[in-house]
Design a protein around this nucleic acid. Structure first.
Lengths: 207, 207
DNA sequence: GTCTATAGCTGGATAGAC
DNA sequence: GTCTATCCAGCTATAGAC
């Protein structure tokens, strides 16, 4: 990848983090990158194209970084802990914000919507791997189908990220509660065979 | 409230729903409202002021509408069902999208951030009421503190809304899984006294 | 309270020199 | 591959007629 292209992608992430989707333009990005505004169109065709590329790049790079951490997760609580770390680290780097903001921008830009969905799927795929491994034969796996759960977690994570932008304390409060919920789910995970069977039956009856 | 002001607020909601935060401007909103663009500044001072007003209005009106439904909720599953209805109904009306998009716009606009946080708190307050009533003395209430849980639910809901804009099928999959998770939590809610005690002990040990 | 008109700026996008 | 220069559309915001 070209040096200038990379600079533009990095600058897009930075601009998205600091200004939000409403603050991005070929000019603001190019200024941040220290290159000429026309290069946005030369390299990416349009601002939307650059946003899409940045969205994909941010997700790809970061998922690579966290793959090893994910691989070591053996419980829901640990998964939550990784999520917390990721939240902290990426809040400053801006990679989660990129997803949140491009997601918001996807409303009126089908091309960006496709790219953002693809970027999100990178994370979702990682989550599916972890969940498959963690849940294994626990009662949780039986009903909380892994693909759906992975998507719910990713969406909730994005929502929390955005929420934190408007109300940091509220978001922190929510995060603490999620830790507690993790304990509950872990409890389910550790159920004895008898109680576990009761749960299974109960669940089958309600679905 | 003035007729024109109302028209502008309604048009803002509509524009936010159809174009996203990146697509709003005094002109696009005024055109949708069928009034002159200068009136945005006359009535609301700035586009940001109008966004803030729309955010507050959308949340207030809708919370009023759903208060009765919320009051009849007696279980987590029912709460989820109301959430699903709200999701469906408001996706078309655009009131949830307003929150999601103004939340995204809050990144670089402190005034809008404050207004959006206030709007979200309207929903959070409703949720707290319901959760307090539902959870009562269940084992869940002991650790999943209600204020944090209410905020987590609101944030997740917003995240799902945004996610649905980029990947409708993925969002639907996630929603289905949340229904299942509701069953699990209800199971916890119905635990016998013995198992319930085991859970409490376990939880105390981990926090 | 609502309109027209306009100043002044920033936006996307392209042509063409280098 | 990068730059300057430029077109034109759209933007916020204000002044002033009605």
């Amino acid at each position: 990848m070209n040096q200038t292209k990379r600079k533009l992608v990095d600058a897009t992430i930075e601009t998205l983090r600091d200004q939000g989707i409403a603050g991005v333009s070929a000019r603001t990005i190019a200024t941040t990158a220290g290159v000429n505004q026309a290069l946005v169109f030369y390299h990416f065709g349009s601002v939307g194209g650059l946003l899409a590329a940045a969205s994909t790049a941010a997700a790809g790079q970061r998922a690579d970084l966290y793959r090893e951490r994910f691989a070591q997760v053996t419980s829901l609580r640990e998964l939550l802990a990784v999520g917390r770390d990721l939240h902290e680290a990426e809040r400053h780097a801006g990679n989660v914000t990129v997803l949140a903001q491009t997601l918001a921008g996807s409303q009126n830009d089908p091309e960006l919507a496709a790219a953002t969905a693809a970027a999100l799927n990178i994370w979702v795929a990682e989550l599916e791997l972890v969940l498959d491994r963690i849940l294994g034969d626990s009662p949780l796996a039986e009903l909380a189908d892994v693909p759906g759960l992975a998507r719910a977690i990713a969406a909730a994570f994005i929502g929390l990220e955005l929420y934190g932008g408007a109300d940091p304390q509220g978001a922190e409060q929510a995060l603490r509660t999620l830790d507690s919920l993790g304990s509950i789910l872990e409890f389910i995970d550790d159920l004895g065979p008898v109680t576990s069977r009761v749960l299974r039956t109960k669940i089958r009856r309600t679905t």
